[in-house]
C-alpha cells in the first residue's frame, strides 16, 4: 500500500513539473477556468432572473448545486480525465504494452499517470460559489450536513472515476473513436442543474443511468439541511455498484486487448 502511495506521489510530482513548463499555460489556465466558471453561471442567472423558483428550487439553493458541480468538474478534469484520455492514446498507438509489462496493477498505473494541477482552481471557485449561495440564504450549512455531503462527494468521485473507466474500456473495443473520451465530460455539463428540475425520461436517466443526481443534487440537499437516509444509502450503493461493474469491464477489456493486439 505504501508503495502505491509513493508511486502516486511520483506521478503527481511529474505532472506538476510538466504543468510548470509552460509559462503561458500558467496564466491562461487560470483565465480559462474563470471563463468556464462564468459560462456555467451566466445561463444560470439568466434563467433565475426570469423565474425565482424553478422545479421547486430557489436561486440560492440551486447555486449550491452549481458549487458542487464546479468542484466535481475540477476533480473530473484535473484528476480523472487526463490519465484516462492518455489510455485511449496508448491503446491507439500500442504503447499500452509498456504499462502492462510493469509489475503493478495496470488500472492503478494508467489512472494515476497524469494530472492537471491547475484544475484545483475549480475547488477555489466552488468554495466562492458556496459562500455566495449561503450568504444569500442567510444561514450556514450544518456540521452534519457538511459531513454527509463530504461522504456523498466521495461516492460521487468513485462513480465519476468508474464511468470514465467504462468509457475508456469501450475504447479498447472501438479503437478508432478517439473522441469517445470527451463524451462523458460534455454530457457531465448537465449535472450543473438540480436533477429534479428535469422531467420524465431525462430525470430517470440522470438519476440511475448517468447518476448526476447523486453527484451534485443530493450533496447539495445535504448541505441545505435535508438529511435523507434513503439518498445516503442509494449514494453508497451506486458507488459500490459502479465500481464493481467498471472493474469487471476493465479487466475484460484488458483481456480482449491482450488477445487482439499483435
Amino acid at each position: 500500500m505504501t508503495r502505491y502511495a509513493r508511486l502516486l506521489w511520483v506521478q503527481l510530482r511529474a505532472s506538476m513539473l510538466l504543468a510548470m513548463q509552460y509559462r503561458a499555460d500558467f496564466v491562461l489556465d487560470g483565465v480559462v477556468e474563470l471563463f468556464w466558471a462564468s459560462t456555467t453561471l451566466l445561463p444560470f442567472f439568466v434563467v433565475f432572473a426570469a423565474r425565482p423558483v424553478i422545479g421547486g428550487w430557489g436561486r440560492d439553493e440551486a447555486l449550491v448545486v452549481v458549487g458542487c458541480f464546479i468542484v466535481l468538474q475540477g476533480v473530473l478534469e484535473g484528476a480523472v480525465n487526463p490519465s484516462l484520455h492518455g489510455v485511449v492514446e496508448r491503446v491507439r498507438n500500442g504503447t499500452l504494452d509498456f504499462v502492462l509489462l510493469k509489475p503493478k496493477d495496470a488500472q492503478f498505473l494508467v489512472s494515476t499517470a497524469r494530472f492537471s494541477p491547475w484544475k484545483c482552481m475549480n475547488v477555489v471557485t466552488g468554495v466562492v460559489v458556496f459562500a455566495v449561495a449561503f450568504r444569500g440564504l442567510g444561514r450556514p450549512p450544518s456540521a452534519a450536513g457538511v459531513g454527509i455531503a463530504a461522504g456523498m462527494f466521495a461516492c460521487a468521485i468513485v462513480v465519476l472515476y468508474s464511468v470514465t473507466t467504462l468509457v475508456v474500456s469501450a475504447s479498447f473495443f472501438v479503437v478508432r473513436v478517439d473522441n469517445l473520451s470527451f463524451l462523458f465530460t460534455a454530457v457531465f455539463d448537465a449535472a450543473r442543474w438540480p436533477a429534479t428540475v428535469f422531467r420524465g425520461a431525462l430525470r430517470f436517466v440522470f438519476t440511475f443511468v448517468i447518476p448526476f443526481a447523486m453527484m451534485t443534487t443530493w450533496p447539495a440537499e445535504a448541505l441545505l439541511g435535508g438529511v435523507d437516509v434513503r439518498s445516503m444509502l442509494l449514494s453508497a450503493a451506486l458507488a459500490i455498484g459502479f465500481a464493481a461493474v467498471s472493474r469487471t469491464v476493465w479487466l475484460r477489456a484488458l483481456r480482449s486487448y491482450a488477445s487482439a493486439s499483435s
Binding site: R13, M16, L17, M20, Q21, R23, F26
Partner: peptide, 13 residues
C-alpha cells in the same frame, strides 16, 4: 528545460 520541481517553478517566471 530544467530538472527538479523548484527549478521548474522558477522557470515559470
Amino acid at each position: 528545460r530544467e530538472a527538479g520541481l523548484f527549478a521548474a517553478l522558477g522557470s515559470v517566471f
